[in-house]
């Protein structure tokens, strides 16, 4: 059985149809990334899956239950890492993690969780004295201390510096390796490419493409672009067989600035959401 199964999900706010007939499935142990522009219906969808918001229509099953009728036992099996929280600033890292551990029937060891997110050196610091990246790692610590089978991560690395993002990614890989199913929403396509087994792109409340990061939107089979510079100036040719073209070009001697590129995930994504000029 899939960890998450969504069929024909709909949600309307007043006149605005935020989610219109969305389908989705996430298998156990998968890292699944939801991509989409602001206002595409990502957050609404995730909040419905987390049991924070009611749906208007559609079938939703998360860990075999309907999140619209969430029980305490069900909530004990999920972990939620929200965005834009700045709560409990007066508590220290260790106090917060210990407190949240008490809410679950079978928590991880709080000190181990603090270690896992790399905050051991800060465990006696108050949350409001942490940097943005450290604060985010505390959020993750609170989301995983209950040993969730399914973890929701909502734009987890917004505002991180590149090094902090790398460290965060390795934490997510550790959790995935332990068998945690992860649903990630992100604006960063490199993040999805780096972490996700599968991605889905949402636009206007619907899934417009779904697949592995390498194959999304026909990326793997798309024409390659070959660029080089010769005596006539910069050259560009699109071809399904770049290897043959390069061999042919190479027969005439060394080429300056030769590159072969396929569409990046970002190119594909921008095409899919119709944002490319």
């Amino acid at each position: 059985m899939n960890t998450i199964e969504v069929r024909g999900l709909r949600k309307t706010y007043g006149q605005h149809e935020a989610v219109r007939g969305l389908d989705l499935h996430v298998a156990p142990g998968e890292v699944f990334a939801l991509l989409g522009p602001n206002g595409a219906g990502k957050s609404t969808t995730v909040e419905i899956l987390e049991g924070h918001r009611r749906r208007d229509d559609g079938r939703v099953s998360v860990l075999g239950e309907d999140p619209g009728r969430a029980t305490r036992a069900w909530r004990a099996r999920i972990g939620v890492v929200l965005q834009n929280t700045h709560d409990a600033g007066e508590l220290t890292v260790a106090e917060s993690v210990r407190h949240f551990a008490r809410l679950y029937p079978n928590p991880r060891d709080p000190a181990e969780v603090v270690e896992l997110v790399g905050l051991t050196g800060k465990s006696r610091s108050r949350a409001d004295s942490l940097s943005g990246g450290q604060r985010r790692r505390l959020d993750v610590a609170l989301g995983i201390v209950g040993r969730p089978e399914l973890l929701f991560l909502d734009e987890p690395t917004t505002g991180f510096d590149p090094e902090a993002r790398r460290r965060f990614w390795s934490l997510i890989r550790t959790l995935a390796a332990e068998g945690t199913t992860i649903l990630l929403t992100t604006h960063y396509l490199d993040e999805a490419e780096e972490l996700a087994d599968r991605v889905a792109v949402i636009a206007n409340g619907e899934v417009v493409a779904e697949g592995t990061p390498a194959s999304l939107g026909g990326r793997a089979t798309a024409e390659a672009t070959v660029r080089w510079v010769d005596e006539r100036g910069p050259q560009l040719r699109r071809t399904p067989n770049p290897t043959a073209l390069v061999a042919e070009l190479g027969a005439h001697g060394e080429l300056t600035e030769l590159t072969v590129t396929r569409p990046s995930l970002e190119d594909t994504y921008l095409d899919l959401i119709g944002a490319r000029a």
Binding site: L82, N84, T85, D87, A88, F100, L103
Partner: peptide, 17 residues
Amino acid sequence: QDREDGTLKRLHGTPLP
């Protein structure tokens, strides 16, 4: 404040009654 700073939302995502 709990409603605005995310305290309530975070707790609502846990098994806390």
